[in-house]
């Protein structure tokens, strides 16, 4: 504890904090954060300059296969405890209206919205954090029950965008303005604009936005005329059949698949499903980059785990063949295929 007074700067404390996450040492991590608060650092800075970047690093380490899923979960758990400790320490008095913060249904990345919730709380709002994966019906009944000034929804995975849109519409029907955030809406919020919803790039921006009701309600309408071609709806209906046939195709072309353990098979099937889901979301917002960015990421993830990208290329080809009557889907898959080829060439060089 003696070191904290000289280190009352999140940037200096960062390394030690990350080490305590690495050691899964909850007490040490909380000590670093509380030490900063005691050293006069505002709670908002501790959350945004210490906890948030460390959590981003945790995600990166998982992506690079340096950390296991269990390690990532343990670190996230500690971050949550740290956020709770910082919140308890600051304990601001609510003087403004109620904001409901929730993860979309099926969204489990609860820490970023939790940070937003705490920043809003620090700025005087009365915040209700509903946590991870909140079913739409639950959220709506909550909004009807309490007089919410606004609802902040988080979406970390772009493939959840169609669900996100339904959820946003459900909130609107309760006449509560919505602000969204999270990587799921694109790093520049372009898919939020497509869905016609106010978007905040980070917690302070979200706080500024909810304070301005007119800005919240003044949102250009959704641009989803392309859904009239029915490609999205048809793809969703064929999801199971597509995954089955893609797996059969892989078994034929990549014999080692037949020797996979049940767990390996499950994760292969998940990946096949993710590709369909990301394609569906890309069709929903009519933006091929949603799919191509995912494929880039997936290739990197698999490469870090020693899985060659070739299999992804085969699957994209297979889906492209199955969906040749869907002009937009076929075009998106073609672009994704080109990304795989480029990455393979780069790796070969």
């Amino acid at each position: 504890m003696t070191a904290t007074t000289t280190e009352a700067d999140p940037a200096h404390a960062y390394r030690g904090y990350l080490e305590s996450l690495e050691d899964a040492d909850e007490y040490a991590a909380v000590e670093v954060a509380v030490g900063l608060l005691d050293g006069g650092i505002p709670a908002e800075r501790v959350l945004l300059d210490l906890v948030a970047p460390a959590q981003a690093e945790v995600g990166e380490r998982w992506a690079r296969n340096e950390w296991s899923v269990a390690q990532e979960h343990a670190a996230t758990h500690i971050s949550e405890r740290v956020v709770a400790a910082v919140a308890a320490h600051a304990n601001p008095r609510p003087v403004r209206g109620r904001i409901v913060v929730a993860c979309m249904d099926g969204e489990w990345h609860a820490l970023p919205p939790r940070l937003v919730a705490e920043v809003l709380r620090l700025r005087g709002w009365q915040v209700t954090f509903l946590g991870a994966s909140v079913p739409a019906a639950h959220l709506v009944s909550y909004l009807h029950r309490y007089d919410a000034h606004a609802v902040a929804l988080a979406c970390a995975l772009p493939m959840r965008l169609p669900y996100a849109h339904r959820m946003i519409e459900a909130c609107r029907r309760s006449d509560v303005p919505v602000v969204v955030g999270g990587r799921g809406f694109g790093d520049d919020g372009r898919w939020a604009r497509r869905l016609g919803v106010a978007w905040a790039p980070d917690a302070p921006a979200a706080a500024d936005l909810v304070a301005d009701e007119r800005a919240l309600r003044r949102v250009p309408p959704a641009q989803l005329d392309h859904l009239a071609d029915d490609e999205y709806a048809s793809l969703v209906k064929r999801r199971g059949e597509l995954i089955d046939s893609a797996l059969a195709d892989l078994r034929k072309r990549v014999p080692s698949v037949n020797r996979y353990t049940p767990a390996q098979l499950d994760s292969t099937i998940s990946d096949l499903g993710y590709i369909v889901d990301f394609l569906a979301a890309a069709l929903y917002v009519d933006d091929a980059t949603l799919l191509t960015e995912f494929i880039e990421w997936l290739v990197a993830i698999l490469a870090s785990r020693g899985v060659p990208a070739g299999a992804i290329g085969l699957t994209l080809d297979h889906y492209g063949l199955q969906l040749r009557d869907f002009p937009r889907a076929a075009r998106f898959l073609g672009l994704a295929r080109a990304v795989v080829t480029d990455l393979a060439n780069q790796a070969g060089r």
Binding site: S68, V69, A70, H73, A74, T76, H77, D105, G106, W108, A132, S133, Y163, S270
Partner: peptide, 25 residues
């Protein structure tokens, strides 16, 4: 097995998430 050693709250969250993803709505 892959979550051995995790605190109970973390493990329960992880299981809920896995089942939720399995159900897919």
């Amino acid at each position: 097995a892959s979550g051995a050693g995790l605190p109970p709250a973390t493990l329960v969250d992880r299981l809920l998430q896995l089942v939720d993803e399995w159900l897919d709505g």
